[in-house]
Amino acid sequence: MSKLLIIGAGGHGRVIADCAEASRQYCEIAFLDDSYPEREQNLAWPIIEKSSTWKSFKDEYSFALAIGNNQARLALYRALDEANVHLPNIIHPAAIISSHSELGKGNVVFANAVINPGSKIGNACIINTSASVDHDCQLADAVHISPGAHLAGSVKVGQCSWFGVSSSSVQAICIADNTQIGAGAAVTKDTEANGLYVGVPARRIKDI
């Protein structure tokens, strides 16, 4: 069993800690967060230093990234990966992941999420509570599939894109880089990069 440091002690970090605890793979779980030393506890888990001190711990701990912003999470992931930090996938035991799917590094997969056969998940992705990624989907790095969001089969999702809570997509479409899909939206055709899409069917309402 190894020790896990989670960078970011917000609500998302608490879910990662709970997920890691449920996996029973870690003898110690702690946080780095910029609120230290004003905050020294995040529910049941200690905050032991500021986020910027991660290099001091890289030989002793595995790391998870509890950063909701996709671009910021990807930048930190790349810095840690370049420093040869161990970035395991944190997977809740109640998630269902096909043995015929592929996951990169530094991903989190929460309770009741499903990843079906033939799917390829990049690095630093979030597959959130009760989300599903159906067969043969391809997710680039730093994608976030929010709670209750569902991708039909053979969907390609570009880097740093985000499906909001309870959003969905039809099969075999391409979601461009840095696309945000609003809560409850249903995507029925390819998107263009750097845009916010909302509604049923989803339509682009602004650049981001």
Rank of each mutant, 00 (worst) to 15 (best):
I97H: 06
N89W: 07
W54S: 00
G104M: 07
L76A: 01
G68L: 11
E40A: 10
I90A: 07
D59R: 12
A66N: 02
I96A: 13
E102L: 12
S62P: 06
K58G: 10
P93H: 03
I96Q: 15
L43Y: 10
S56E: 15
S62W: 00
T53H: 14
N69M: 04
I48N: 05
I90F: 03
S52P: 07
R73P: 01
T53W: 07
S56L: 14
S98Y: 09
E60R: 10
A95D: 03
T53R: 14
R78P: 08
W54T: 00
L87C: 03
Y77T: 07
S101A: 14
S99V: 08
S51D: 13
P46H: 02
G68I: 03
H92Y: 04
G68F: 03
F63A: 00
E60P: 07
I97C: 06
H92K: 04
K50M: 09
H100I: 08
Y61S: 02
N69Y: 05
I47Q: 01
H92P: 01
E49Q: 10
I90T: 06
K105Y: 07
H92W: 04
L76R: 06
L76N: 03
A75F: 07
I47F: 02
L87M: 05
R73I: 02
W45E: 08
S56N: 15
I48V: 09
G68D: 06
N89Q: 13
L74Q: 10
H92E: 06
E40I: 13
G104E: 04
R78G: 06
P88I: 01
G104L: 12
I97R: 11
E49P: 04
E60D: 14
K55I: 11
S101C: 12
I97V: 14
K50I: 10
A44L: 15
A94P: 08
H86E: 12
A66Q: 00
L74I: 10
L43R: 09
W45S: 04
K105V: 04
D81L: 10
N84W: 05
I47W: 00
I48L: 02
R73A: 00
R78D: 13
Y61T: 02
A72K: 12
F57T: 07
A95C: 11
A83S: 11
A75G: 05
H100D: 12
H100M: 12
A64I: 01
E82W: 10
N70W: 01
F63V: 05
G68C: 01
K58W: 01
I91W: 03
Y61P: 07
N42Y: 06
A83D: 13
L87H: 03
A64H: 01
A79R: 13
R78Y: 07
V85S: 08
S51M: 08
K55P: 13
K58R: 15
P93T: 04
S99I: 11
